[in-house]
Write a protein that binds this DNA or RNA. Structure first.
Length: 491
RNA sequence: CGGGGCGUAGCGCAGCCUGGUAGCGUACUAGCAUGGGGUGCUAGGGGUCGUGGGUUCAAAUCCCGCCGCCCCGACCA
């Protein structure tokens, strides 16, 4: 195994695939298209979960859990949604195996044990959840109903990539019910805001908030809001979605409530989710040819301490390391002290760079004399020798600075790679020669959108929410347009 | 589903064309030296060569079937 990663500039997808494996985030499994998330990768996901979960609770949501299986009759009740997912559903048809009479020691599906009704493995849970909500909601007093679940879902993808697209993935899905349309829309937008805040403040990833075109909209929704991020190779990645469902699911599952005036009406719904795909976003947004670069707020270990040992007499050095660790922990910093004597310091340096630990501290006997320590930043790969006095504050400040610096770097990159383009030829040239986000005028028709997609592989990522109105003409058809939309080739 | 590639030691690969003792790097084990950026040297352990059949005195190697995985496209978070 070669020690260096492939270079981003030479083989971006090879770099990504290798990095995920070498940094111990995840690996392929015995099941086609499904990944094993390894402890280090899962630790990052857990940090994301903890943060998001807190944010959901702060906005009034409660967690619950609904079944993995959805009876086919329920699944097909909301037609648009069912059609949208039909091609990628795993289906359970039997409930028993038996010994194969023809092959000793082998099992076969027992043909006698066919299910009366097939069970769909959830690709999303609207159906099972709304069928349950019917029993929970009678009056406006039962609303709003604000539920989230952390779960796995299955979408039978043809081509998979670790974290970015796997047949089974982990996510959270919020499902809410409201008495008015306005309140449901407000909820949809609020949760989009939560995602954007999470992306920017924790993933250190700048995102564009927007609305999907009808073509790209979630099946069964009236409006799909999204946050779109730009990866280092100039491709866009959808990092989260929030759907205004209107009364579609309420009607499909007959979820009605009586309002204050005694009138019976269908409730208004939303759903919103982010998945382990965020791991892919995190990796591709910040990491470099040496390995992962993790924002301090999501790093399993914010600081690693590496003692530089000599000979056998290291008692004082190791004791100093332990004291340092205790000081940092007390200051609220997560610290790993790697005092293994089975690996060399140089090996550890390379290892923690690969794993993206934001700050590395090295202490040797020389430092003991000087009351100093070597402090290295992962994001800039710079190092300096600093005094042990007041090290807690120094590192707390540094962690904030790194978090900020990573964000700014990503933001600067996105701004540099976001171009306004007014004619189709330049548009195509940009995509090939300097890929990134392109803001361009579009006539608003699905036909033009489809044509651009077929001819250039670029899609409309979203109609950005925060932008000035600007009259113009569609770069393809010359028809009038009231504002620019965001194009990119996407993951 | 279409196109391409690959299954040989934990991992990464060579060997196959031209059949004849299964090899390299790395990882692993031990010893000695070394020790502020993936240490060096020496010795050692580890493989039904994906699988089933065929050809042959002899198959990792040639022929046929099957299975699995990866990559590129169409679909998607």
């Amino acid at each position: 195994m070669s020690k260096a990663l492939p270079k981003r500039s030479e083989d971006y997808s090879g770099w990504y695939n290798e990095l995920v494996k070498r940094a111990d985030l995840a690996e392929n499994s015995a099941v086609r298209g499904c990944m094993v998330i390894k402890p280090y990768g899962f630790a990052i996901w857990e940090k994301m979960q903890q943060t998001l979960d807190r944010m959901f609770k702060e906005t009034g949501h409660s967690n619950a859990y609904f079944p993995l299986f959805v009876p086919k009759s329920l699944f097909e009740a909301e037609e648009q949604n069912a059609e949208g997912f039909a091609k990628e559903c795993a289906v359970v048809t039997h409930y028993r195996l038996k010994n194969d009479p023809d092959k000793k020691g082998k099992l076969m599906v027992d043909p006698e044990a066919r299910l009366e009704e097939e069970l769909i493995v959830r690709p999303t849970s609207e159906a099972i959840i709304w069928s349950t909500y019917k029993g929970w909601i009678q009056s406006y007093r039962d609303l709003p109903l604000l539920i989230n679940q952390w779960a796995n879902v299955v979408r039978w993808e043809m081509r998979t990539r670790l974290f970015l697209r796997t047949a089974e993935f982990l996510w959270q899905e919020g499902h809410t019910a409201h008495s008015t349309k306005a309140e449901a829309i407000e909820e949809t937008e609020k949760m989009l805001g939560v995602y954007a805040e999470f992306a920017e403040n924790f993933l250190a990833l700048p995102v564009v908030k927007g609305v999907k075109t009808p073509n790209e909209r979630f099946a069964g929704a009236l409006d799909t809001y999204c946050i779109e991020a730009l990866m280092q190779d100039g491709k866009a990645l959808q990092a989260g979605t929030s759907h205004f469902l209107g009364q579609n699911f309420a009607k499909a599952f007959d979820v009605k409530f009586t309002d204050k005036t005694g009138t019976l009406d269908y409730v208004w719904g939303t759903s919103w989710g982010v998945s382990t795909r965020l791991m892919g976003a995190l990796i591709m947004a910040h990491s470099d040819d040496n390995g992962l670069v993790l924002p301090p707020k999501l790093a399993p270990h914010q600081v690693v301490i590496v003692p530089i040992v000599f000979g056998d007499d290291n008692a004082v050095l190791l004791e100093t390391c332990k004291q340092l660790k205790a000081r940092l922990l007390k200051a609220g910093i997560s610290v790993l002290l790697d005092d293994r004597d089975t690996q060399k310091p140089g090996w550890k340096f390379a290892e923690y760079e690969l794993k993206g630990v934001p700050v590395r501290l090295a202490i040797g006997n020389r430092d003991l004399q000087n009351n100093s320590i070597e402090l290295a930043r992962r994001d800039t790969l710079t190092k300096e020798t600093v005094s042990l006095d007041g090290i807690e504050d120094r590192i707390l400040n540094l962690l904030d600075e790194i978090q900020e610096s990573i964000y700014k770097k990503a933001l600067a990159f996105r701004e540099k790679q976001t171009q306004k383009v007014d004619d189709y030829e330049t548009f195509k040239k940009q995509l090939d020669e300097n890929p990134g986000f392109i803001l361009a005028h579009w006539d608003g028709t699905p036909e033009t959108e489809e044509r651009i997609k077929t001819e250039t592989k670029a899609t409309i990522r979203c109609i950005p929410l925060d932008q000035e109105k600007e009259e113009g003409v569609c770069m393809v058809t010359g028809k009038p347009s009231s504002g620019r939309v965001l194009f990119a080739r996407a993951y």
